[in-house]
Amino acid sequence: MIKIKDLEKYYKTEELQTIALNKLSFEVKQGEFIAVMGPSGCGKSTLLNILGMLDDSDGGSFIFNGEEVINYNERKRASIRKHNIGFVFQSFNLIDQLTVFENVELPLIYTGVKKAERKKKVEAVLEKMQIMHRRKHFPQQLSGGQQQRVAVARAVVNDPKLILADEPTGNLDSSNGNEVMELLTELNDQGTTIIMVTHSEHDAKYSHRIIRMLDGQKVTENSLV
């Protein structure tokens, strides 16, 4: 599904250049659950941003579903993104001015789904995430665990082929964290590919394969299955 080769990314300020990704290469197959680990600043998040087409790379190749997307413009990337990729963040990143229902509905609006169908889909996913009773609440009225469930709901509502999760349990206590990990596993079982960045060895154990990074390079790669 994903094939990256010699991926490079630099951050430049006036005085110095930092290498975030240094000729990184790996492959991810459809239905896999990958955990990316490594110390702060090793390039995990940069990698996730590039995989999510939120950021450009400075070199290398990135093939998504058989398509080379490295040189795609913003419009094309936005289009691939909204049809194929769901995101889950450490800090949930819900829109404060929208209710639970509206937050989850948002991706469907951008992909042009009809209103009646949107309602059906949003309700189904909220039901599945057991957050239906909170659908009219605003994010700040929910607990962290509930907010992350909403964020996961939003990530999956469009039936994406790929979920990118950036430390999804980082802001949660262990029981809420486990719940989110169970959710992700369940989604993976149903066929969704998941790439998750994490600091937690515990969370990484839910995955099929762990890629460890340091200074923008892959250090080890070990399969858990």
Partner: peptide
């Protein structure tokens, strides 16, 4: 908000 909207698929 802009960031999230872009993430979930909004164009510029």
């Amino acid at each position: 908000e802009v960031g999230i909207r872009k993430v979930v698929g909004s164009t510029r």
